[in-house]
Design a protein around this nucleic acid. Structure first.
Length: 259
DNA sequence: ATGCCCAGAATGTCTGGA
């Protein structure tokens, strides 16, 4: 089984590339982030024509997540129990589903903006809600993974130049502690192999030749429980999808499983 | 070559992204 996660930065803008990539890559289950649509605008019908069902949690121009599967889609849970919300509004940042033998949770963790911004406190609160929400599945015997845009670089090697990130979100100790707490439920980081260069970056800024200069970050992560991790046969970043006109600023992370 | 922000809502110019 081939599972992937991809922050598409608008599923409407990305639809031609998304449909082509699903077919060419042979992906069975795709966790999507930043759909930037309402649920009604989500391309459910186009995906169904390719043989994929969709579980969508989306409300408009910001955020939005989905699980797209051609191997079954059951027990859909939209949102996160205990989601703290931002400025009184719960945002569409999580959706879970069971796809054949595997359960997945597609997440779009809040950005945080600046360390002294309320959005940063919200980010840490959201991580704690995620930890609590996935603890049972993480400890279970069924293969389970939380896949998505975590908006945290787990180590200094996961950014192209650590000195440029001092004082910024995505690299702070509390954010990395939140990742460690999540791993503490029984999840481990399924680190992909890079297809080029030394580090498996998953995001490159659109500006200033970020991608050609490989000024990237690894912030799209796959955290799998022990049965999931044991089944992994390969994992890589499909950086080809970051190339050319009409690309997202994130590349898909692909995981192959023997399940 | 992988190439010097993009998307959405809106129609001028913000917000958000990381």
């Amino acid at each position: 089984m081939r599972i992937a996660t991809w922050n598409v930065n608008s599923i409407t803008a990305r639809l031609p590339r998304l449909l082509a990539w699903l077919e060419s890559s042979g992906t069975d289950v795709l966790c999507v982030q930043e759909t930037k649509t309402t649920a009604e605008q989500f391309p459910t019908h186009e995906l169904r024509e390719l043989g994929y069902e969709s579980a969508v949690n989306a409300t408009g121009r910001w955020n939005g997540v989905a699980v797209v599967s051609r191997v079954g889609l059951e027990d859909i849970v939209r949102g996160l129990p205990g989601d703290p919300g931002y400025e009184g509004v719960e945002e569409p940042r999580a959706v879970s589903a069971t796809c054949g033998p595997v359960r997945v949770c597609s997440v779009y963790v809040p950005n945080g903006r600046e360390v002294d911004h309320p959005h940063y406190a919200y980010k840490l609160q959201w991580f704690e809600a995620l930890r609590a929400a996935v603890a049972d599945d993480a400890a279970g015997s069924r293969p389970f993974a939380v896949l998505g845009d975590y908006n945290v670089a787990p180590t200094d090697d996961d950014v192209f130049d650590r000195t440029l990130f001092e004082g910024s979100t995505h690299v702070t100790e509390p954010e990395r502690a939140a990742l460690a707490a999540l791993r503490g439920t029984g999840l481990s980081d399924v680190v992909p192999r890079p297809l080029k260069y030394d580090h498996p970056f998953t995001y490159w800024d659109y500006r200033q030749l970020g991608f050609p200069k490989n000024r990237g970050m690894r912030i799209d992560l796959v955290y799998g429980n022990a049965p999931f991790a044991k089944a992994v046969t390969d994992s890589y970043v499909d950086r080809e999808e970051r190339k050319g006109k009409g690309a997202s600023d994130h590349a898909p992370v692909v995981v192959d499983l023997d399940v």
